[in-house]
Computed example of a mutant assay.
Amino acid sequence: MRTEESKTASTILYSILIFLTFIKVEARNYKQVCSSSSCGEINNISYPFRLRGDPSGCGDPDYELSCVNNKTILEIFPGKYYVKNISYEDQVLRLVDVNFANANRSCSLPSGSVENTDGFVQDFRFKGVLDSLGSRFRFVKCSRNISSLQEAANHTTIPCLTRNGSYVYAVYDGEYSYYNPQPSCSVVSLAPVDLLHDINYKFPSYEAVMELLEAGFFVGWSLECRDCSLAGKSCVVKSWDKPLTYICERENKELTRSQGNLIIAGIVVGGLIALLVIIGILVFFVRKYRTRRNASSSTEKN
């Protein structure tokens, strides 16, 4: 009797364990359905983006936004930017540096540099097709006044930051161009802008520069490119149909010397084998021809 009760208890316990395991697996595979969030003028914050404070499982943690004073903010390297628009179809954001968004146009440098000195977005989360497109202002600090130099004709002076023998300029940099600072100058920051113009375009005043900076710029994003970057690979566009899709670019690894020698040896050995096969075939046909000829000669003599 006790044996049967023990078997029954064991069966029940085993069934419970299987049930709990099944529930655990299902919970792990379950993707939470989340409604879009909103903050100020941005009312369509959805996957992959999330607002700080959203339920766990909503959006991707790498694409978390914050809502401060009813404004949506994205932090990149280590600047802060107001999100003005999110296009999920084009996979692009329109951003404005918080230091350039004030109506009073306070005189300031960018809060951070989204791009490196070559004009490429540094943050692995934002490696979309706009990665190397557009123009920028390079903020340059010089140890002397270079305004009168012909080579510095496109340098716009920033009066409120020029003091104590230090001269600060905003230099417009067009698409795919590279700026070489004057010997007495160095680049201190970059700010992307949405304008394609000649590199030597001259802005008449810092107020004119500010108008463009206040308008903001576009930056693309791609989860596929994010994953490629984390794997140490670059990504390429797989399909231009919207929304764009990407794949990791195949690595072209250089052959080692031993691998090269093995390939050469294989080619040489393969060539020798092919030559021997050809010679063998020729010898076979020559012998066959001679055999037939000799047989024919013997028949004629008889």
Rank of each mutant, 00 (worst) to 15 (best):
2 R>F: 05
6 S>Q: 14
11 T>Q: 12
11 T>E: 15
11 T>D: 12
13 L>Q: 14
15 S>L: 12
16 I>Y: 11
17 L>D: 14
22 F>W: 01
24 K>V: 14
25 V>Q: 10
30 Y>P: 01
30 Y>A: 10
32 Q>I: 15
35 S>I: 13
38 S>Q: 09
40 G>V: 07
41 E>A: 03
41 E>G: 02
41 E>K: 03
45 I>V: 15
46 S>D: 15
46 S>G: 14
53 G>S: 04
55 P>H: 05
57 G>I: 10
58 C>G: 13
61 P>V: 09
65 L>K: 05
68 V>L: 11
70 N>T: 00
71 K>Y: 10
73 I>P: 12
74 L>C: 07
83 V>S: 08
85 N>C: 03
88 Y>T: 09
99 N>C: 04
99 N>G: 06
101 A>T: 08
101 A>P: 12
101 A>E: 12
102 N>L: 04
102 N>I: 00
107 C>F: 02
109 L>D: 00
114 V>S: 03
116 N>V: 06
116 N>L: 13
119 G>H: 03
124 F>K: 06
125 R>F: 08
126 F>G: 10
127 K>L: 10
129 V>C: 06
129 V>R: 03
131 D>R: 11
131 D>N: 12
133 L>R: 03
139 F>P: 04
139 F>E: 01
142 C>M: 05
143 S>H: 05
145 N>V: 02
145 N>R: 06
147 S>L: 14
153 A>H: 13
157 T>R: 06
162 T>Q: 07
166 S>K: 07
169 Y>F: 14
171 V>K: 07
174 G>A: 05
175 E>C: 08
176 Y>L: 02
176 Y>Q: 11
178 Y>A: 14
180 N>T: 15
181 P>Q: 06
181 P>I: 02
184 S>M: 09
186 S>K: 05
188 V>Y: 05
190 L>E: 04
190 L>H: 06
193 V>S: 08
193 V>C: 12
196 L>M: 08
196 L>V: 13
198 D>K: 09
200 N>V: 02
200 N>S: 14
201 Y>A: 06
203 F>A: 12
204 P>S: 09
209 V>I: 15
210 M>L: 12
211 E>F: 08
217 F>G: 11
218 F>M: 09
218 F>D: 09
221 W>P: 00
225 C>I: 09
227 D>R: 13
228 C>K: 03
229 S>Y: 02
230 L>V: 05
230 L>D: 01
231 A>C: 05
232 G>A: 08
236 V>C: 00
236 V>F: 00
236 V>Y: 04
236 V>T: 06
237 V>T: 15
240 W>K: 10
242 K>I: 10
244 L>H: 06
246 Y>H: 10
246 Y>M: 07
247 I>G: 01
248 C>P: 08
251 E>I: 14
252 N>L: 13
252 N>D: 15
253 K>I: 13
254 E>N: 11
258 S>D: 14
259 Q>L: 06
263 I>W: 13
265 A>H: 09
270 G>I: 01
271 G>K: 03
273 I>L: 15
287 R>G: 09
288 K>C: 08
291 T>H: 11
291 T>L: 12
292 R>W: 02
292 R>P: 02
293 R>N: 11
295 A>I: 03
298 S>M: 05
301 K>Q: 05
302 N>I: 09
